[in-house]
Structures are given as structure tokens and as C-alpha cells.
């Protein structure tokens, strides 16, 4: 956008942007530098020896995978139904779903909390998975339906004339053709499920069931606010996300952007 004709102006632009990203680097630097203070690598050793550390990651991975699977399947089916099949009062159903689009999760808190004691929702992954999936679905359906609307009806028509049933059309036409959107859906749900904090905070109380977003306060408890270990813990917890993002940069950016570019 900015044209830099001379060497000097190009240099100024480079310096300017470097200064502007300093605020972004400060927390990252604080985390890394802080984690090596005091006992140095010993901080990491201490953190890695935290009992049940692996549980936190395993539980987060489990919740993310199940949520992704559920959201993916129901979203694809619904997008297919809304876009390519015959449904009476289709738009009524669609808008009932879209009305839930902007729902904040805290709204679910009081009723879920009240039910929790009665039905025994505490320390159940479903208490986290179902609400997260429920809150994601309106949005992923909106995205995917818009996308599927763009696939010509003729392709489905042709499949049917060749004798494909509805299930076959879904499996052999819709699923392969909607792959680009599916990537966005998966990334979106992955980030939201992995980063979710409020629902695990309230419902997953037993350390055996806790997830990575609850690790910082667990470390704080374990190390009595020994900042060096807390920083090491934060870095270790953020690492999978940092690696995933850097190695799948394009998909992450596209997945997140898909959210706003409806």
C-alpha cells in the first residue's frame, strides 16, 4: 500500500513497524525470560514433574476432538439439508437457529449450574462439550450453508439421476466439495474448545478432569506464586498452540477470518 521509493523511506517504514510490534513482543519476552530466571531449566523440570500434568493436555485434546467431531457432523448434515433438500418452513427453522448466534455462554451458567447438582454434571466432560458445541453450531451452520449454497444444484441433480440416494449425495458430493469450509469449521471449533475457560472452571473441579486453561491457577497453587515456574508453566501450556499456529498458519488465519466475513 505504502510506496517507498527511496531507500530511506523503506528503512523508516521498517523501523516504524518494528517499534509498533514491541508491545506485542513484551508479554512473549516476559514469559520466556521469566521462565529461565532463578533455577533456569530447573523451572521446566519442576513444572514437568507436576503430577497429572499429562491429564490436563489429554483432557483438553479429548474435549476438542469430540466437540469438533460433533460440530462437524451436525453442521455438514444441516448445511446439506438447509441448502439442497426439501424442508417445509425451512427459513423458520434456520432463523430459530440463527437467533442463538450471539448468545453469550454466561447466559447458560445459572441453568447449567442449577442442573449440575441435580443431574450430576460435575466432572463430566459432557457438561463442557455439549454447551460449547451447542454455541458453535449456529455459527458453523451459517458459514457452511452459505458455502454449500454456492455449489451448483446440478451436481446433486446429476448424482440423483445416476441413482445416488440422499446419503450417497451427502457422502460423495457434499463432503468432498465442502472441504475448504470444513477446514475453517475445524480450526474455529478447535480454538474455541481448546481455549474455553468458563465452563471447565465451573464444572471440571477434580484435577483428573481439568483442562489446560486451568493449568495456570494450578501452577500458582502448586508454586505459591513462584513467578519463574508460573512463567515456565504458561510457556509449556501455550507451546502446542504456538506450534500448531506457526505450522498451519494459513488455515488458522483463514479459519478465524471466516468468522467475520459472512
Amino acid at each position: 500500500m505504502f510506496e517507498t521509493r527511496s531507500r530511506l523511506s523503506q528503512f523508516i517504514l521498517q523501523v516504524l513497524i518494528t517499534i509498533m510490534v514491541i508491545p506485542f513482543v513484551v508479554p512473549l519476552y516476559t514469559m520466556i525470560a521469566g521462565s529461565f530466571q532463578g533455577e533456569g531449566l530447573g523451572n521446566y523440570q519442576a513444572v514437568l514433574q507436576v503430577p497429572k500434568l499429562a491429564y490436563f493436555f489429554r483432557n483438553s485434546a479429548f474435549i476438542a476432538l469430540v466437540t469438533i467431531a460433533i460440530v462437524y457432523v451436525v453442521t455438514m448434515m444441516a448445511a446439506f439439508g438447509f441448502s439442497k433438500l426439501r424442508i417445509r418452513r425451512r427459513e423458520v427453522f434456520f432463523w430459530m437457529m440463527m437467533a442463538a448466534l450471539t448468545l453469550p455462554e454466561v447466559v447458560l451458567l445459572a441453568p447449567l449450574f442449577q442442573m449440575a447438582s441435580g443431574v450430576g454434571l460435575y466432572n463430566t466432560f459432557w457438561a463442557v462439550i455439549i454447551p460449547i458445541a451447542a454455541l458453535q453450531v449456529p455459527f458453523t451452520v451459517l458459514l457452511t450453508r452459505t458455502y454449500v449454497d454456492g455449489i451448483p444444484d446440478d451436481l446433486f441433480e446429476a448424482a440423483r439421476i445416476d441413482g445416488a440416494g440422499t446419503v450417497r449425495m451427502f457422502w460423495n458430493v457434499l463432503i468432498p466439495l465442502s472441504k475448504p469450509m470444513a477446514v475453517a469449521v475445524v480450526v474455529l471449533v478447535l480454538i474455541n474448545a481448546w481455549n474455553s475457560y468458563l465452563l471447565p472452571l465451573v464444572f471440571l473441579i477434580d484435577p483428573d478432569y481439568q483442562v489446560v486453561t486451568l493449568l495456570p491457577q494450578y501452577f500458582q497453587g502448586q508454586y505459591n506464586d513462584d513467578q519463574t515456574k508460573v512463567m515456565a508453566g504458561a510457556l509449556l501450556t501455550a507451546l502446542p498452540e504456538i506450534i500448531a499456529y506457526i505450522s498451519l498458519q494459513k488455515y488458522f488465519e483463514r479459519g478465524m477470518a471466516a468468522g467475520a466475513l459472512k
Binding site: 506485542f24 508479554p27 512473549l28 516476559t30 514469559m31 521469566g34 480454538i191 481448546w194 481455549n195 475457560y197 489446560v212 486453561t213 486451568l214 493449568l215 495456570p216 501452577f219 500458582q220 508460573v230 512463567m231 508453566g233 504458561a234 501450556t237 501455550a238 498452540e241 504456538i242 500448531a244 499456529y245 488458522f252 488465519e253 478465524m256
Partner: peptide, 14 residues
């Protein structure tokens, strides 16, 4: 973009 990806809960002690 990295701050968008990392969970608020994980970065908040930092």
C-alpha cells in the same frame, strides 16, 4: 496474530 490464538487463560499470568 499469535495473541489471537493463545488462550486468554494461559496468557493471563504473563
Amino acid at each position: 496474530f499469535l495473541p489471537v490464538v493463545i488462550a486468554p487463560a494461559i496468557m493471563s499470568p504473563v
